[in-house]
Design a binder for these strands. Sequence first.
DNA 1: CAACAAATGCAACTAAGTTGCAAAGACAAA
DNA 2: TTTGTCTTTGCAACTTAGTTGCATTTGTTG
Lengths: 134, 134
Amino acid sequence: MNKSTENILKNSNLRNTHGRTSILEILTKAGKPITQEQIAVKLKKTLNKTTIYRNLESFLKAGMVHRVFLNQRMWAYELSHNCTENQCHPHLICRKCKKTTCITNCNIPLFDNIPGFKIERQKILFEGLCPGCQ
Amino acid sequence: MNKSTENILKNSNLRNTHGRTSILEILTKAGKPITQEQIAVKLKKTLNKTTIYRNLESFLKAGMVHRVFLNQRMWAYELSHNCTENQCHPHLICRKCKKTTCITNCNIPLFDNIPGFKIERQKILFEGLCPGCQ
DNA sequence: CAACAAATGCAACTAAGTTGCAAAGACAAA
DNA sequence: TTTGTCTTTGCAACTTAGTTGCATTTGTTG
Ligand SMILES: [Mn+2]
Ligand SMILES: [Mn+2]
Ligand SMILES: [Zn+2]
Ligand SMILES: [Zn+2]
């Protein structure tokens, strides 16, 4: 909807459609990884699930979003603006409430000194308790 | 088949069946996370996939195996003997050959000092190049 | 506005894992 | 070693998450 979203799409050679801007808005508001289905229910004007998946795929290719694995059998997507080139910010899955939280206020070094391997990207998943569950 | 497998099963109140011992042998030989299907093709005497899943589930509950996430849409299972209580050993997925390697010769600290959170377990996934692909 | 490529909706399909149930098997007590 | 009971297994049908093909619609550029 807003100017910056429009420009982001243009710069990635993606057409400015209602679906795309809505999905980006929803991802921005979410502030954490969400699934296709969660996106679908938040949409004011419904979009076919195929379309949602295809849009997410195009965002992925353009580097605008990341696909995150969360111990369930489905993907979750989030804006990649809190990640560096070689490290996604970590996530925590709460043992009690099962919710996922982005951990962005931490400073975890990249462990790229593993003999024999070239480490390009590091992803960390924590299990434990979120602030609300202790 | 061997005595120790038998005892492991007994200690977990799991009956000593041919399927269980074969799956455990296969997991031991594999030395890395493998999927239900990969287990199935390695079996000398075929087992129904439901049975494989159910056995893996019982091993999981007993803490004998871990379920590992590998950027695909299916689970991989491995013996948990290379993990500590609060940290699975990391895995690397090679960008070139797509193979998964266990990283067991590293010493990565647990990042449990994240304000507001109680970290109980840490899982790391690396992307990069394996020794054979550089 | 016209032309064209890109995006969408729909229905059918695939893949991974799950469920219910009847039959077979493990194991311990007698 | 037989018996009884509880566990495990196989099978078929089902579920869930995501994908594919194709006809229609829409965005963008000139
Ligand atoms: Mn996040
Ligand atoms: Mn491993
Ligand atoms: Zn919680
Ligand atoms: Zn490799």
